[in-house]
Design a protein around this nucleic acid. Structure first.
Lengths: 184, 184
DNA sequence: CAGCGAATCTTTCCACTGCCAAGATGCGCG
DNA sequence: CGCGCATCTTGGCAGTGGAAAGATTCGCTG
């Protein structure tokens, strides 16, 4: 929308980044299903077909956003990896809440291009970081899956508002308490 | 679509049921975000504005579907409630997979009418059934939330395909193994 | 520094969608 | 029998995703 003075109407500068930022804002307001590619283009200050060249179609935008989300998540988990599983789990929940727009797109495969390589790579990296911390605590092959399920479920239930009635405190301490039940 | 011979084009018979069934089929095929009210009307064999009288708008259809889903879930949980929490948790996961279309709509508040009374009632009934079984095992106030988070997270991860690489067996036994880690 | 190919963005168009308004139909109750 | 109301249809409007074709500028090559 705001274009620098003297800048030509062509060649936005970094339209790809601008569209992704607009998508984050729009999804935060209306949810992943309530966004429109044309609105993202308007927010970025280009015509409605501008983003096509960078993303192909609407699924391309959401796929790029999901891949970016998995990378951000992997970074957040790696930063806590040496503090034990509980803190990694708390970081997972914190990421889901602080980057809600990313998180809500990441686990909706019907919104993605299935065969996207960057997405698959980023997703595997984040998944390995979470389950590895848990399997070091217990040698049960299922422990990693249980750990991921626990924190993923808590994050989802929190985001959908299903838990707010019983948990008035902040999600960080609640998530920590949950994680400690599984890994005392 | 298929209308009984001799039936007049007006007064479908049970259009409300037909639209909900069509919605289940459409969501199973294309996900909750990929359905169109006009397509549901076509599948039910009525004009594109037929469903309006029964549901108001698109959110009305999805709200009714979510309420129906929470009722079905509560029934499924109640049927296992005397066999202990582990089996209740397994039933939760089994419901999510067998009634995938319902489940995917139930936890997407942005698709609902927020103030729908039947939805709220059905949701509270199902939530109480799940957490009560868990809090009877442990007196920790967080145990119920942890139990719900664990099974909800596992169901979600399974449905999105994030776990299929490491779990070739059927989800029932995997869910049972997960639940036993939290409640041995 | 000229100019040419490629990248980037715009304009135009079509089928489809959600929703609203107005009209048509037939069920059930007096 | 006929009248009111629930049910369904038709028609219309603004907005959307995507394809096609054109306009503009970048950057590389000579």
């Amino acid at each position: 929308m705001t274009r620098f003075v003297g800048m030509s109407p062509y060649h936005h500068g970094d339209l790809r980044r601008a569209v992704l930022d607009a998508a984050v804002a729009a999804i935060t307001e209306h949810g992943p299903a309530g966004i429109s590619l044309r609105d993202l283009a308007r927010r970025a200050g280009v015509s409605h077909a501008g983003p096509v060249h960078h993303f192909g179609d609407k699924a391309g935008v959401l796929t790029a956003l999901a891949a970016e989300g998995f990378d951000l998540l992997a970074d957040a988990l790696a930063a806590e990896s040496d503090r034990g599983f509980v803190e990694v789990g708390v970081a997972y929940v914190r990421f889901a809440i602080e980057h809600r727009a990313h998180f809500e797109v990441m686990f909706r495969p019907e919104l993605h291009r299935e065969d996207d390589a960057p997405l698959a790579a980023a997703r595997d990296r984040a998944g390995a970081l979470l389950t590895s911390g848990a399997s070091s605590v217990s040698d049960d092959a299922m422990a990693g899956v249980a750990a991921w399920s626990l924190m993923h479920g808590f994050a989802n239930l929190w985001l959908t508002g299903a838990l707010r009635a019983e948990l008035l405190e902040d999600p960080d301490t609640a998530a920590r308490a949950i994680a400690r039940i599984l890994f005392p």
